[in-house]
Simulated scan of single mutants.
Amino acid sequence: MRPPRPQGFPNIAGQLLNRPLAIHPHKAEVLVCALQQRLGIVEMKTIDGVTLEAKEMLDRADFARKDALARDATYSPDGSKPYRMDGNIAVITIEGTLVQKAGWLDAMSGFCGYNMLQRQFEAAFEDSDVLGIWVEIDSPGGSVAGLMQFVEFLAMHTQSMGGKPAYAWVNEMACSAAYAIASVCDKIFGPRDATVGSIGCVMVHTSLAGALEENGINVTVIRSGERKYRGNQYEDLDDATMEKFQGAVDATRITFANLVAMGRDIPVDDVLATEADWFEGEEGVRLGLMDEVLTERQAWTRLEDEVDRIKQERRRAA
C-alpha cells in the first residue's frame, strides 16, 4: 500500500476554517494563525505564544513535506506492521491536531489523520499477534470531519463490544476530538497532570472585509441564489449564516456528548454540564472522564494483565 499523496495546507484549511471543530481553544488560535499565514491571508508581525507556535508548526510542516516526498519516490512495502509491537500489545500513537486527510502532514508536522489511524486500528484488530492495544494520546483535538465515522468504528471493535481491549494512556492531553477517541476505549488512564475533556464544538470564521476596505480593495460577490457563497471571508457574517453556523456547532456538541455518555457509561446531562471545559487528573476521574490516575508503568501493567488473562482463556479453550 502506497503512502498517501501530499495534501497540503489548502486541504487542511478546507477542513478547519468555517467548519465545526472539536479542538482546545488555544490550539484553534495557533491553527488559524498558521493557516492564514501559509495561505497569504495575514503576516506574522507580532511575537507571542500563538505566533511562535504557529511558526514552529509551519517549519515542521515544511520539513515533513520534503521528507515525505523523498520517501515516496523510493517507497517499497516491506510487509511490516503499521504500529510498534511490545509482546502481544500494539502501540498506536495519536499525536497532534486531528484531521481527516493529513497526507504527509503527520505528527512530525503537528497533524494526525483519521484515515491513517483507522488503517492502523483495522490492522491491529485483524492481527492475530495483537491481543491488546495501547493507545497513547497527546492531542488537543481537531476536525469534526471524519471524526464520528472513525470513533464509531473504534467503538465497535473494542473489548466491550466483543473485540480486543484498547487502553488509552493520556500522555499530557486528550481534548475535544482526541477525547472522543479516548472515550470509546475500554479504559482511560493518565498521570496527575493529564488533561481531558473539552467536550464541545467551535467554528472559526475569518472576515477580511475590514482589512480589504482599509487597503482600498473592493471585492464584489456576484451570486445567483441568496444563500450562495454565504460565510465567505470577504463579507461579514449575516444573521442567517451565523444562525446556521451556531446550529451546526450545537448539533455537533450534542452528538459528541452522546458519544461520550455511551463510551464512559455516564448520563449525557452530566457530560453536557461540563460546558466543554477541560479537567486535570483527579477531577477528570471524579467526573467519570478517566478511570484512574496512574503512572505509565502501572497503566501498562493493567493492559499486560488483561492480555495474560486472554492468553489463559485461549489455552483453556484449546
Rank of each mutant, 00 (worst) to 15 (best):
P6V: 05
N11T: 14
G14S: 14
N18M: 05
H24I: 04
V30P: 08
Q36S: 08
Q36Y: 03
T46D: 12
A61I: 03
D62V: 12
P77L: 00
I92S: 06
I92H: 03
I92Q: 04
G96L: 00
G96N: 06
T97D: 11
L98V: 01
K101F: 07
K101I: 04
G110D: 12
G113A: 06
N115R: 09
L117M: 04
Q118D: 04
S128N: 08
D129N: 12
D129R: 11
V130P: 09
G142L: 04
G163N: 03
N171W: 02
A174Y: 03
A177I: 00
C185D: 02
C185Y: 02
R192Q: 11
A194H: 01
T195P: 01
V196M: 06
I199T: 02
T206N: 03
S207F: 07
N215V: 01
N218M: 06
T220A: 14
R230Q: 05
D238L: 05
D239A: 09
E243N: 09
E243I: 08
G247E: 13
V249H: 06
N258D: 03
L259D: 12
A261K: 01
D265P: 01
F279G: 03
G281S: 07
R286Y: 04
L294S: 05
Q312F: 04
E313F: 00
A318Q: 04
